Simulated assay, not measured.
Amino acid sequence: MLNPDHDESIRHAAQPGYDQYRENIARGKITTVEYFSMTVGSKRKAMIYLPPGYSKDQRYNVLYLLHGIGGDEAEWYNHAGPQVILDNMYADRKLAPMIVVLPNGRAMLNDRAEGDLFEANKLKAFEDFESDLLHDLIPYIESNYSVLMGRENRAIAGLSMGGGQSLNIGLGNLDRFAWIGGFSSAPNTKEPELLVPDPEETSFRLRLLWLSCGLLDNLKHVSDRTHTYLKQNNVPHIWYEESGGHDWPVWKNDLYHFSQLIFR
């Protein structure tokens, strides 16, 4: 259960250089894998970050980190260099050991971010990703990597469309996820009453619920709505308003802060 003191507004940025490549530190490994999705009926791709010193003799927590409507499994890698951010934090002893999985949240045969991204079938594919994640990707990860399998060893977070997915999927499956984060969550986020129909039960089961958004983001009303409902219903959560808009400096900063809090 969350400490109610976690319901606060944080207004500090990551330390300078947090996202810059450093020499002479241990490095993790980031690769692309393929898994078969029964949900989609085809092979799908995901990127996997293994922390420095990954060993099959140790079991690891897992963070599922989701992209936005204009991206795919490589969006975080291409725009944010999450492996650099994470390597630096491991060097500074700021993280609990974890694997980070970067899936493609558009669960359809042609899952590339091309054409009209707002077509009905493409938007539905983001909803269908819940089944792909729960029934195809998570079992693949748990069969092929040395991971811990309890709900308290599994986190989900994402940006924009992926933030909405993370809140929808995480809060709808508290038997699977104890750590949930929405970064600048998009309008695909369910209405708060649907996200958290039982505030007391949600409060009891969650270890961390994180909401964040840039103060200049034109989608901030979505996060404001969720935060207001949670506060009115005494659901402990971190509410992080930060400088910036709907952009990568915000989301990299969110990853920096959120990843330090999970699996503690």
Results as ranks from 00 to 15, higher is better:
Asn3Cys: 02
Ala13Ile: 13
Tyr18Leu: 08
Asp19Phe: 13
Val33Asn: 07
Glu34Asn: 14
Glu34Pro: 06
Thr39Arg: 12
Arg44Trp: 00
Tyr49Met: 03
Leu50Met: 15
Pro51Cys: 08
Tyr54Phe: 07
Val62Glu: 04
Leu63Asn: 04
Leu66Pro: 06
Ile69Gln: 13
Ile69His: 06
Ile69Met: 15
Asp72Ser: 07
Ala74Thr: 15
Trp76Gln: 03
His79Asp: 10
Gln83Ser: 10
Val84Ala: 10
Asp87Ile: 06
Met89Ser: 10
Ala91Glu: 05
Lys94Trp: 03
Pro97Asn: 02
Ile99Trp: 02
Val100Ile: 10
Gly105His: 00
Ala107Asp: 14
Leu109Asp: 08
Ala113Ile: 02
Ala120Trp: 00
Asn121Pro: 01
Asn121Gly: 00
Leu134Cys: 09
Leu134Trp: 10
Leu134Ser: 11
His135Cys: 09
Ile138Cys: 06
Tyr140Lys: 02
Ile141Gln: 03
Glu142Gly: 09
Asn144Phe: 13
Ser146Asn: 08
Leu148Lys: 14
Gly150Ser: 15
Arg151Tyr: 04
Ala157Asp: 07
Gly163Val: 13
Asn173Arg: 15
Leu174Phe: 04
Arg176Ala: 14
Arg176Cys: 05
Ala178Cys: 09
Ile180Glu: 05
Lys190Arg: 14
Glu191Cys: 03
Glu193Cys: 00
Glu200Tyr: 01
Glu201Ile: 09
Phe204Gln: 11
Leu208Tyr: 12
Ser212Asp: 15
Ser212Ala: 13
Cys213Leu: 05
Gly214Lys: 02
Val222Ile: 11
Ser223Asn: 11
Arg225Asp: 12
His227Asn: 12
Thr228Ser: 01
Gln232His: 02
His237Arg: 12
Ile238Tyr: 08
Trp239Leu: 07
Trp239Gln: 09
His246Cys: 06
Pro249Gly: 13
Lys252Pro: 01
Leu255Asp: 01
Leu255Val: 05
Gln260Asn: 14
Gln260Ala: 05
Leu261Asp: 04
Ile262Ser: 04
Phe263Gln: 10
